[in-house]
């Protein structure tokens, strides 16, 4: 069952990251990128690395989204 969960999480990560790349709006792209962080947290936990999972959860939820949203607030949606 663990192998199936790993496989499906990888497929979901690939779909979400490709959607984040090809979105027209930057805000959608940023929100889908947070989904990439969530999926990698699940995979790190399944790979028996709880330290790395905790770090990735804190970074991708707290600081990384703030950085991208502040960049969006300045740079705007144009082009």
């Amino acid at each position: 069952m663990t192998g199936f969960i790993i496989l499906s999480t990888f497929i979901g990560l690939i779909i979400v990251s490709f959607a984040a790349i090809i979105q027209k709006k930057i805000a959608d792209s940023i929100i889908l990128f947070m989904g990439v962080g969530l999926g990698s947290v699940v995979l790190f936990y399944l790979f028996k690395a709880p330290d790395v999972a905790l770090t990735e959860a804190v970074i991708s939820a707290g600081i990384s989204s703030l950085i991208f949203l502040m960049a969006l607030k300045h740079l705007g949606e144009q082009k």
Binding site: D51, V58, I59, G62, I63
Partner: peptide, 25 residues
């Protein structure tokens, strides 16, 4: 807590520091 118990449980200085920074945020 995450910072001080880093040698006993998952966690440590990097994670604890970023958690405190998100509180400041």
């Amino acid at each position: 807590y995450v910072m001080i118990y880093g040698h006993l449980s998952p966690g440590g200085g990097f994670q604890g520091g970023v958690i405190i920074a998100s509180g400041v945020l």
